[in-house]
């Protein structure tokens, strides 16, 4: 069963084409993101991750290839591109630097207001997303500039969620946060995805973060698509990922090292819980044998 919400076909983007500075940022990318899944995107700085997500909401227009949202080319009608941005909500890196309104309420309401929604609808959405990001009602009347770094980040993410996009794209949502902040943001994204059933795409450098929340992983390498599959599938290519210079989750590293020491570990694991279970099972089996 396939029911892709967002699909790219042979997507290619070239900066400064036909000049000496020509750089192909993404090359022939074809992926289909299934409705209701949480997709993680990993890859080096400069591998094309950011360029790819800028195509998802039409901030960039491909040199060749198409982006299909719900089966329709997002550039079908040029004038409708703003509507696409409401349906594919992109939250860029360090989104707290886009906050500008006097109050948290007004800032979160900026997107919905641009959509031309009624006051009541905006009010409902603002209050609803605030609970998603775990902030109390009293925050609504505060100035976003008086909040802590982690709180600002959550308000900024709420501003995108309030547009109720069909696809929520987050670029490095945990960058620069402390461990507690990271855990909060990750939990918040997971909860949002489960509750609303919407599709979520998360770009991250942290393999551990991606491994813990994603259903599927998309790996970019040198402007091309390296892998796209379930977390198990992608991390089973651990050696290939290492060859690309990417990190693999620490637990996957452990898995490889134990195998090299003669442990019989059939499944590649990537979280602490999985590793715990797999190692105990392996030792038990060897003990009884």
């Amino acid at each position: 069963m396939t029911d892709p919400i967002l699909e790219t076909r042979n997507l290619t983007y070239t900066y400064a084409p036909k000049t000496a500075n020509e750089v192909t940022a993404i090359r022939e990318i074809s992926v289909a993101i299934e409705r209701g899944t949480l997709v993680g995107i990993i890859g080096h700085t400069g591998s094309g991750k950011s360029t790819l997500i800028e195509h998802f909401n039409g901030l960039k227009k491909a040199t060749s290839g198409v982006v299909l949202l719900d089966g329709r080319d997002i550039w079908e009608n040029k004038k409708e591109i703003r509507q696409v941005r409401f349906r594919v909500g992109v939250c860029f890196q360090y989104p707290e630097y886009q906050l500008f309104e006097e109050t948290v309420y007004k800032d979160v309401a900026f997107g919905p207001k641009n959509m031309g929604l009624s006051e009541e609808e905006i009010d409902r959405r603002v209050r609803e997303v605030l609970s998603f990001v775990g902030l109390e009602e009293r925050y609504l009347e505060l100035s976003p500039f008086d909040l802590s770094g982690g709180e600002k980040r959550r308000v900024a993410i709420a501003g995108i969620m309030a547009m109720e996009p069909q696809v929520l794209v987050l670029d490095e949502p945990c960058a620069g946060l402390d461990p507690k902040g990271r855990a909060t943001v990750l939990a918040m994204i997971e909860n949002y995805q489960k509750t609303t059933g919407s599709t979520v795409v998360v770009v991250s450098h942290s393999m551990e973060d991606i491994a813990s929340i994603a259903d599927r992983i998309l790996v970019m390498n040198k402007a091309g698509l390296a892998f796209f599959g379930t977390v198990e599938e992608v991390f089973s290519h651990a050696e290939a990922l290492v060859a690309m210079g990417l990190d693999i989750p620490q637990m996957t590293q452990l898995c490889l090292k134990l195998r090299a020491r003669g442990f019989d570990l059939p499944e590649t694991f990537y979280t602490v819980e999985q590793a715990h279970g797999a190692i105990l099972a392996c030792l038990k089996k060897e003990g009884t044998a």
Binding site: D178, P179, K180, Q250, M251, H276, I279, L280
Partner: peptide
């Protein structure tokens, strides 16, 4: 204190 331990340390504790 709102911090973590390295995953290897966490797994060692579990084992």
């Amino acid at each position: 204190a709102g911090l973590d331990v390295p995953q290897a340390t966490a797994l060692a504790a579990l084992l």
